[in-house]
Amino acid sequence: MACGESRAENVSRLSGETMGTFWNVSIAAELDDAAKNTLKQRIESELEAVNDSMSTYRDTSELMRINHSRDASPQTVSDGLRRVLAKALEISKESEGVYDITVGPLVNLWGFGPEKRRDKPSDAEIAAALQHVGYHKLQLSAEGLSKSDPEIFIDLSSIAKGYGVDVVAETIDAAGYPNYLVEIGGEIRSKGNKYGAPWRVGIERPEAGLVSGAAVANIIAMNDRLPAMATSGNYRNYAEKGGEMAYHIIDPKDGKSHSSRLLSATVLAGDCMTADAYATTLMLLGDKKALAFADAHNLAAELILAGEGDKPYLIQRSKAFTQAIQEEQP
């Protein structure tokens, strides 16, 4: 996603690094240097807490403590991790396991997690990893999170970044600023407006060649009813494995890296972690099922598919997306 602004005066900007990417904040207010520094410190502290809780790249994180544990009894989880797990398990059930945060063994096997590898996994390796995948093997209760399989490896990369966006938005709210735009690695959440004008963000489309880059397909005016936007796609995070292209979104049903005509899925939602997880779900469903799922579950979604003939791409929109947006062509 790309963020667009037509008026720059009195927009205070903050930025930094997190989760292997960058965070950016625009606030429709004039903050002095002291206020900027104070808010930036709060934001970075909150994002550091998210990483310490949910990163699979930090061996001492709260999530990795759970992943390493062989204990079948409930393990205490923080409020933030509980919030993310609850949403993830809700969408897993709703999608009948198409979305599944226990996909970690497969993500690692394909080399898209903290454990890197260059070769394509064998069918036997995939079959072995699939034995330890299944959201139904997790139980979230008042006592904590329990695993019925000690080899379960939870990967929250499909939802944690969206949650990070929500945490930043809540931090800005708590600081008393009612008009802002937050972005982390293309995930968006906005509130209010920019001096009477809506915050505008661009939905990317793949350039010719499909994986070589991106350009703006259209520009969306954000609103407070669906203030969050997340996009999942197969045209950026990919690698060659055994002479074939492998994409980072791994199907928890068969353990394979699939591609379809669906190149990206963008979802608008009330919070960014929800948008993030649903965008991944739609990518996993592919071009044959994603739009029907979005309409059946009242998701505001835009899908970009590879085109045919002289059309490089095709845009599909759910009914809820069409009703929700105001669009300006770039």
Rank of each mutant, 00 (worst) to 15 (best):
D295H: 02
D276P: 04
A294S: 14
A275Y: 04
A239K: 15
S259Q: 14
A292P: 00
D251A: 12
A294P: 06
I250V: 13
D295M: 02
R317I: 03
K319C: 01
M229C: 12
V267Y: 04
L291G: 08
I250D: 04
L262E: 01
A277Q: 12
A277F: 12
M229T: 01
M245Y: 11
F293M: 08
L263G: 01
P312E: 11
H297K: 14
A246S: 15
G233D: 08
Q316F: 02
F293I: 10
F293P: 03
S259V: 10
N234K: 06
Q323F: 02
A265E: 07
S318T: 07
K319R: 15
S264Q: 12
D271Y: 05
I249T: 15
Y238H: 13
K241G: 08
Y238L: 15
G309K: 09
A290I: 04
L262M: 02
S257G: 06
D254H: 13
L282N: 08
A230P: 01
A292N: 08
F321D: 07
D276T: 11
K288A: 14
A324D: 11
K288F: 01
L314V: 15
D295A: 03
A275K: 08
M229A: 12
A296S: 15
D310V: 07
G286W: 02
T274Y: 06
N298E: 14
C272R: 05
A296V: 02
Y235F: 15
A290L: 04
Y235C: 03
K256W: 12
T280I: 05
Y238C: 01
I304D: 02
A306M: 10
A230M: 04
D271H: 10
I315M: 10
G307Y: 10
L305Q: 09
